[in-house]
Amino acid sequence: MFAYHEPQSLAEVTSLLTAYGESARILAGGTDLLVQMRKGRQQPHHLLNIKTVSGLEQIAATEDSVEIGAAVTLGEGERFLAAYPEYGVLRQAMHSVASVQIRHRATLAGNLCNASPAADTVPALVVLGAKIKIHGARGDRLVPVERFITGPGRTVLLTGEVVSAVVLPRPESGSRGVYLRKARRPSLDLATASAAVFAAGGAWRIALGAVAPTVVRVREAERLLAREGLSAATAAEAARLARAEAKPITDVRGTAEYRRELVAALVEQALLALGEEGARP
């Protein structure tokens, strides 16, 4: 049993979170939280519905950034980003989450805060250089997505803090990315492994999902591609470097060995798909 709250402002969320501490949880889409509560893994005494905070349901596009409010669903995000091909990698990742029904409730911010090593949107946000806007008692702070998640289910959020938005920097024109994932079935299952690649004006970013406690960058491969450009040979070498960077576990979705092979193949395929798009920087 829990008490249900409908805060109207971020300040009210912060004061409720400060007052109730660990016994409070933020309710955004609820697609993870309600399931965890039903299984007894979480037993909050207070749920704070942030969908009632005005402004959090908005997406604001400026010259410098696209800011996706914490109550924006994955489905809404997907539709909005259709007009921004440079964010295609994130759109593909959002579309990979669960099912149509879940994407109509689940939020981008919630996918981050749940901090699953297999979260689809996180590798895409990492390659885009996204930042997380956090509201707390002392005001707002911005944290790069790579530093936001510290381990499975763990983030840098302090007591009283709430994510208010995900901020995507505007990449230079012509930037393109690809997100690929493999799961036991295409819908609803978590990724066994995933890879996001992004090319922006001669620079490359590669991030791997579900093969370590948090998302992993393959920096050596990024430098190789920046130095030598994209070719079948450098894509194969990037895949080899990704395999070496992965530190997967064995679980019901696959063995560690399988995950290493899988993530290497995903990186190579994603790079080659980018090359075919003619997006070579």
Partner: peptide, 26 residues
């Protein structure tokens, strides 16, 4: 009862959702 089977699907404001994952108070 976990959003994985779709048997509880209804349209909420015109969009399909799993009704087992929506609190009535919302």
């Amino acid at each position: 009862d976990a959003g994985e089977c779709g048997a509880c699907t209804v349209l909420l404001n015109g969009k399909p959702v799993n009704s087992c994952l929506v609190l009535a108070v919302e």
